[in-house]
Amino acid sequence: MNAEERDPLLVAIKRLYSELDPPPQGLSERVLVALAVDDLELEYELLTMVHRSQQLAGVRGGDDQKLVMEFTAAGITVMLRISPVDAKHRRIDGWVTRATDAKDSPVELTASLWQEHGTATSPVGTHGRFEFASVPSGLTRLDLVADSDSAFRTTLFEI
């Protein structure tokens, strides 16, 4: 269908949503950063964010806000709880749950955190737990790498 045949009402709807719900500022730039730091030689499965919410942990509000995120890919779910350490640092507690067939032959996983100023790693414990006690706030990406050739990767997210 070319422009001439297009229902003017659809054109108006397009304009409406462009005004009402524009992409967040800097989205294209964050995509370009994500592409630039994606090392193509590493084979991985993409983890999709299915949930992100703020949890108010205490009565003081503000600094007590915990961020909870959940990512999934085939056979794996990752939960992250991010709590403020101070104004510029965050603590990350993570839980990995794998599908039952993968549990039968457990593979050791390493959690690796990519940030603009460097990377940090943490082994994933037998119960699927891992933690980063204090990492800088900012754009972050989580990789879960197995000893074998399976790996999982999130998109960039702000903590």
Partner: peptide, 17 residues
């Protein structure tokens, strides 16, 4: 949600590359 939408957009581009 905004966060999930941004994730889906990023994932789409990573998948293309």
């Amino acid at each position: 949600t905004q966060a999930a939408a941004e994730d889906a957009v990023q994932n789409t581009w990573l998948a293309l590359v």
